[in-house]
């Protein structure tokens, strides 16, 4: 059944280790259920769009600012070392490699994990605690499909779009600084910038973005949907969503970069 029932049993190894394995098992079941329900019956298109809008709306301002400043500051910090070799003309391609390969997906994922992940965790947890999820269930509505599947779809769709946006804004920040210092024109900046970017870079960044989006959605929905009773369950769900998402994002980053480099 859907109500989370905690049954105190005798631990097999120790309480902590048992709990850890039980968590992994439960997350596995949760994942299977997401795929099963996503492909069963019609997609909740309107709700997915609404959630996508929420993801974008919540994080756009922060992402714009962070992306722009990251590009700008990164350029400023790199200039002295490059100018020692008289190689400031390499700045655009250096920055584009850094932004597109690494910074854009990572910065976007970490910010959305903080803003959106905690939001989803807290929202679903408070719906669980105030019995709104049970209320859906008893009025013959499938809360899992309506709440969880739509949110996971929304983060998986909209975070890649945000990553592309962060990349663009970061490059603009960098362009501003380079334009002011080296008087490079807009077109020659972007020509330089994309000289050393390959198709594989876009693919890897795209895959990362999708994986990060999916991770944030699944982790925060899992934490919220299975929140324990009481108001502190809400805070805990929000908090754990962020911590676990960020941890997994770093792991996935390392993993995907390893694979990409072995192909290159």
């Amino acid at each position: 059944m859907d109500s989370n029932i905690e049954q105190p049993e005798k631990p097999v190894i120790s309480k902590g280790i048992d709990g850890f394995f039980k968590d992994i098992y439960n997350i596995f079941l949760f994942l299977i259920r997401i795929f099963k329900e996503a492909f069963k019956g019609p997609v909740e298109v309107r709700e997915v769009i609404r959630q996508c809008y929420q993801v974008g709306y919540k994080s756009l301002a922060l992402i714009t600012m962070t992306g722009f400043i990251t590009g700008l500051v990164f350029t400023k910090q790199s200039r002295p070392s490059l100018s020692e070799f008289g190689a400031t003309s390499w700045l655009p391609s250096l920055i584009s490699i850094a932004v597109i390969r690494a910074l854009a997906p990572l910065v976007t994922a970490l910010i959305t994990a903080g803003k959106v992940g905690s939001g989803i965790g807290a929202e679903l947890a408070s719906m669980r605690v105030t019995e709104q999820i049970d209320a859906m269930e008893v009025s013959a509505i499938n809360p899992f499909k309506f709440l969880v599947v739509t949110r996971v779809m929304a983060t998986t769709i909209s975070i890649p779009i945000l990553v592309a946006y962060t990349g663009l804004v970061g490059m603009l920040g960098s362009f501003l600084d380079i334009h002011l210092n080296e008087q490079t024109s807009f077109t020659s900046f972007f020509q330089e910038a994309f000289k050393n970017i390959y198709f594989l870079d876009f693919i890897t960044t795209g895959i990362k973005a999708v994986v990060f989006g999916f991770t944030i959605g699944v982790v925060s929905c899992y934490q919220g949907y299975n929140a324990s009773q009481g108001t502190q369950g809400v805070g805990k769900a929000a908090n754990t969503s962020v911590v676990v998402s960020m941890f997994l994002i770093f792991l996935e980053e390392v993993f995907i970069v390893q694979i990409a480099n072995s192909i290159r």
Partner: peptide, 19 residues
Amino acid sequence: LRELRLKVGFCFQHGALYD
């Protein structure tokens, strides 16, 4: 179960309205 639930109404202790 979903069919049956249409015929059984449940009023929660605190209303459980979708906020």
